[in-house]
């Protein structure tokens, strides 16, 4: 009996440490030319799609092995990067900062896009965020998302209280959020991005009461590319190829609008005309420049969304020349 118990404990501990061992072994991975990227759909991620379709990373590093992973949302991408399953993810600045604050070893590699972000309401009597009543519900992707932080920024500006509207929030993915808004039930507002933003505004009775830039008070990068320290430090060639490929993708979009629309219409299953309209929207821009990080960090730290704040941009942005 005693022996049995001891043996089972030993077996149990053995498995526990094997598990722990596995992950340590994973850490000393030798440099293999490979990169694992989270693929996401949406206009804000267009250059990533171009980079994939035109095989631009391969162009700079022909022997590279690329894995494209599809994950549901930012939280899942972040968790996959934390688990060491992904090297690159694209997301908005606030979710990145939350991970950084929790000690994740990652930094921003580049900007990707700026995009219109808008708060659409389905009630005529709501003209600004001041007009929300306790019965209204505001749908957005999740707490801690850029939409949530933008709304908090606007609330702070208006009332000095960033969490004033937090009790009205309903977390819904973009498609469900749109359905809920159009259904005109308890959800009376939706904070969203194109194409959902444009589609919603095409419906009668819908109007926008707040946009991202207005809330932020300055221009900011909507989506940034984030990579792990592992990729940056252990595989500088891959990191470099990735950045160059992305840069080329942005330039390609600029120079070959027709082919761009072809590729994206196919990938996103959107009508070409519609897509063109979205791409030509003045607020839709693609660039590797990163804007707005410190403002987000400052605001989020002051209001307890994160505990520490980067002293300077270098703390959260990989330096392209320091290898």
């Amino acid at each position: 009996m005693k022996v049995k118990v001891i043996v089972s404990i030993l077996v149990f501990l053995f498995f526990g440490f094997t598990l722990a061992g596995c992950s340590t072994v994973g850490k000393v991975r030798e440099e293999k030319l490979q990169i694992r990227i989270a693929e996401q759909y949406g206009l804000a991620y267009a250059p990533v799609q171009i980079m994939k379709e035109k095989k631009l990373i391969e162009k700079y590093l022909p022997e590279i092995e690329i894995t494209w992973r599809q994950l549901g949302n930012t939280a899942a991408i972040r968790e996959a990067m934390l688990a060491g399953e992904l090297d690159v993810g694209f997301m908005a600045i606030p979710p990145f900062l939350i991970g950084w604050d929790k000690g994740m070893e990652w930094k921003i590699a580049c900007g990707l896009s700026s995009s219109p972000v808008g708060l659409v309401v389905n009630k005529d009597n709501i003209k600004s965020i001041q007009d929300f009543t306790p019965e209204d519900r505001i749908a957005l992707p999740q707490p801690g998302s850029v939409q949530h932080i933008l709304l908090s920024l606007a609330s702070e500006k208006l009332w000095g209280d960033p969490s004033r509207l937090d009790n009205l929030l309903v977390t819904l993915g973009h498609p469900d959020g749109m359905n809920a808004l159009l259904a005109q039930r308890e959800v009376s507002a939706h904070f969203t991005t194109p194409p959902y933003l444009f589609k919603e505004l095409e419906n009668p009775g819908m109007h926008q009461i707040l946009d991202g830039r207005e809330a932020m008070g300055e221009e900011f990068t909507f989506i940034v590319g984030v990579t792990t320290a592992e990729l940056y430090q252990d595989q500088p060639k891959v990191y470099d190829a990735f950045l160059r490929a992305l840069e080329e993708a942005v330039n390609f979009m600029d120079k070959n609008p027709v082919e761009t629309v072809d590729i994206l219409a196919e990938a996103y299953q959107i009508e070409q005309e519609e897509l063109l309209k979205y791409l030509e929207h003045p607020d839709m821009a693609y660039s590797l420049e990163v804007k707005g990080v410190m403002k987000f960090a400052d605001f989020m730290q002051k209001n307890d969304y994160i505990k520490r704040e980067p002293a300077n941009l270098e703390e959260v942005l990989w330096d392209r020349n320091d290898k």
């Binding site: 972040r78 991970g99 707490p143 993915g173």
Partner: peptide
Amino acid sequence: IFGAVGLKGGLGWYIFKQRVFMDT
């Protein structure tokens, strides 16, 4: 998936909130 329904939301919402703020 829904997030907070009603004023506070339930236990699932609690867990989800911890997730998005990476409070393991």
